[in-house]
Design a protein around this nucleic acid. Structure first.
Lengths: 240, 240
DNA sequence: TCCATTATATTGGTATGCCAAATTTGAATT
DNA sequence: AATTCAAATTTGGCATACCAATATAATGGA
């Protein structure tokens, strides 16, 4: 474990808030009260409050007190980051296919050149898993960047980074290393690129969708565990 | 202003990291060094470090030091929340239309019922702006929830909440109050609902796209300032 | 020379104490 | 009884001091 103490305190405070049924706008117990309650110094409670403040759950006002800013859900209480890899891929499929379609309208020659460079890098770095992975990330994020929309890039980045935080993905990633799937995905990337160069929005959407469909399929084959429930959407194509 | 000092220190540290060109994995200067550099106590630097840690930018290891966890972009450096309302709406249009299409596959009768209730609420609460606004939020987020995908709901929620943090939106919102646009948007919502009920994915996508197109159009009319650059995408329909 | 062991220094972790802003209280005044 | 204003209290802000874990340097034996 060896987790920093302020986090532990912070989680305890969240539970305390839930238990005492505080509503948005309500005043929280003071730092000193929590300190005594948990048997720690006020410094630690203060750090925990900062954590909650950064998470936008509370608002701290000097001389007045701290106030509940948004309702605490059980999800926020524990770790949200550990969603299944299939759920993550599905989200990426839905969102990134649209981002690719959007990018097809706004992509510039410079963007296309950058993508080309990344594609070349991917094909030349098939041996180094780390390099190939970085290039993979670049490819997807460059497309999001080509939309010229900060929030779309931000969304794509957030989803990608979640992948690396996901514990189950780590395990699956080990097996992907051994396989030769990066070669297959390279073809996928090439097709997405071709559609973008033609500025074909629907083609780009389709290609990106199919690419992530293939990734899901691969992951499915590699995982010996039972597949989580996809509600019949795993292999469904929204284009149909 | 009256912002809490640790935030200020945290931003300064981010700039300092960028200026010194630290890479992911590199070791940061110690808390004591920053404390002396900024002329504050180590406590404040420590609080700033906690802020960066919560933001997943750094990792703090007792007895060893703190390390850069992910590359700091200029966006994370300053306030990311203050993107233009049009950029935000464009992102919502791209993403939420796909989310609606996805939801059309997985939506349950219970979801549809909840949506119906929200629609009724919207039409009955046309006078109370606050209530109508809450219902509006519920409508959009219920659809995201109907995808059964945590991350899609999370994404939609994030985008919506950004709206309220956006300073320019606040001003525009004042004028929307006076207008009767909520009535028009109610029709849009009804159409989205109809497509979802028919489980028509492409219809839902189209309807949601058009709805947010209308919102953009309204905002465009209401804002007397020159429109930001949309790169010809503002009125483009990816379905074309 | 190399490796294991111990001592020292470095670095983050926690507690205590005092300061400043905000709030509350209550006495004085009308 | 209502209002005003100042003193006291409450509450978060910040700094200093010491503790504990880690890393590094020094030491000594093989």
């Amino acid at each position: 474990m060896a987790e920093r103490l302020y986090r532990e305190i912070g989680e305890k405070i969240k539970l305390e808030i839930i238990k005492s049924k505080l509503k948005v706008g309500d005043k929280l117990p003071t730092e000193r009260i929590y300190a005594e309650l948990f048997g720690v110094s006020r410094t630690l409670v203060r750090e925990a409050f900062i954590m909650l403040e950064i998470e936008k759950l509370i608002e701290v006002k000097k001389g007045s007190g701290s106030y509940l800013k948004s309702q605490i859900s059980n999800q926020q209480s524990s770790k949200i980051s550990d969603v299944g890899p299939f759920e993550l891929l599905q989200a990426r499929q839905v969102l990134e296919s649209s981002i690719a379609a959007c990018a097809a309208h706004s992509i510039t020659k410079a963007d296309l050149n950058a993508l080309q460079v990344t594609l070349d890098l991917e094909s030349s770095e098939l041996n180094s898993v780390e390099k190939a992975n970085a290039a993979d990330r670049d490819f997807h994020l460059l497309i999001a960047k080509a939309t010229q929309n900060t929030l779309l890039l931000d969304t794509a980045t957030r989803l990608w980074d979640m992948r690396d935080e996901n514990s189950m993905w780590q395990q699956l990633h080990e097996r992907i290393k051994d396989s030769s799937y990066h070669g297959k995905w390279l073809d996928d990337h090439q097709q997405v690129f071709d559609q973008l160069r033609k500025r074909n929005a629907e083609g780009a959407r389709q290609a990106m969708w199919q690419h992530l469909e293939n990734v899901k399929q691969t992951l499915f084959e590699l995982s010996d565990t039972d597949a989580p429930n996809f509600d019949g959407y795993l292999f469904a194509n929204p284009q149909h």
